[in-house]
Design a protein around this nucleic acid. Structure first.
Length: 304
DNA sequence: GGGCAGGTGTAAT
DNA sequence: ATTACACCTGCC
């Protein structure tokens, strides 16, 4: 039994999963060209398929899972919210030009605890390694699910873990941060349920008290885990995109980017951020240092 | 072998 | 209030 999550054009699964919001998905294409994706949403091991007719939830069957999945992809409780939001953002001429390139990009609503740990790990790191770290954490400390997968471990479980257990998950120097975060959450000092309805800045100030959580990670937790649409995470890609698209390519400090975004997009800044990020990664390549360009040239030469 | 990768903490202005 | 630096680890 399959359940339709979204109609044609409402959600681009591959684009959304490739946008660096979540780290527990694998996806690709099948023989017919449809996108197939497998991932973990809470305690559900989810299988998705996107073809010309829309997005289909293939497993697990059952209405509860469909509702949880719809909420995760931002399609529920208000299916029309994304369309209205993007229409509003298109009033900005730059975004009006960007949005056609980023259609179907969703802002995920993840478990805030999982988002917190994932983005603490993301600091000074790269995506393949973040994925491996999160997977190892789940395998080491998470609850087993059907099919050999593991749920993301609870804060209580991580709080009790040995540092060497966390280090074995390739966390490196972030291991103590993750455990400290777990203890703050398990001890009730950081209550995500209370942060969601709170004023954005107040919630942000709370998150910043967690070791390993700085401005960027806090904004990721707010946006991807707590539904704070005004949060505007400034990473290297967004800074690059904003600099290029709004500041004539001049370098801009992260703080200036954030202030600009807040003034320009207000409560929709986070959604704007995700589209700028997606556009930046696709169309604004990184600027390689001379040393790196030299190395890559050497490798290319020796490999030919 | 050295720099880099979705930043942050810390110590110095 | 801003500005250098170091940093686990795997990869090129």
């Amino acid at each position: 039994v399959t359940h339709r999550l979204a109609g044609p054009g409402a959600l681009d699964v591959a684009r959304t999963l490739a946008s660096g919001q979540a780290f527990r998905w694998r996806w690709g294409r099948d023989g017919s060209g449809a996108t197939v994706a497998e991932g973990i949403v809470g305690r559900d091991r989810v299988r998705l398929r996107q073809d010309a007719d829309g997005v289909w939830l293939e497993a697990p069957a059952g209405r509860g899972a469909a509702a949880r999945c719809g909420r995760y992809f931002g399609l529920l409780p208000d299916p029309g919210a994304v369309r209205r939001t993007e229409a509003t953002l298109a009033a900005d001429p730059v975004l009006a030009a960007v949005l056609p390139h980023t259609a179907g990009l969703a802002i995920l609503r993840q478990d805030p605890w999982e988002a917190a740990v994932s983005f603490i790990i993301s600091a000074n790191n790269n995506i393949p390694k973040i994925v491996r770290s999160v997977e190892r954490l789940a395998r080491a400390l998470g609850e087993p699910l059907r099919g050999g997968a593991y749920a993301f471990p609870s804060p209580e479980r991580v709080a009790r873990a040995h540092l060497r257990t966390l280090a074995a998950c390739l966390l490196g120097y972030r291991a103590p941060y993750v455990r400290a975060a777990a203890r703050l959450v398990a001890g009730g000092h950081v209550a995500f349920d209370a942060l969601a309805p709170m004023d954005v800045d107040a919630a942000r100030a709370r998150l910043l008290q967690i070791p390993g959580v700085g401005a960027k990670v806090a904004d990721c937790i707010l946006l991807f885990g707590l539904g704070h649409g005004a949060a505007f995470p400034v990473d290297v890609w967004v800074a690059r995109a904003v600099s290029h698209l709004y500041f004539g390519g001049r370098p801009v400090t992260p703080r200036a980017v954030q202030d600009f975004a807040r003034a320009r997009f207000g409560p929709l800044a986070g959604i704007a951020q995700q589209h700028l990020f997606c556009y930046g990664r696709a169309h604004l390549g990184r600027t390689p240092s001379p040393a790196r360009a030299d190395m890559e040239a050497r490798h290319a030469f020796s490999g030919s």
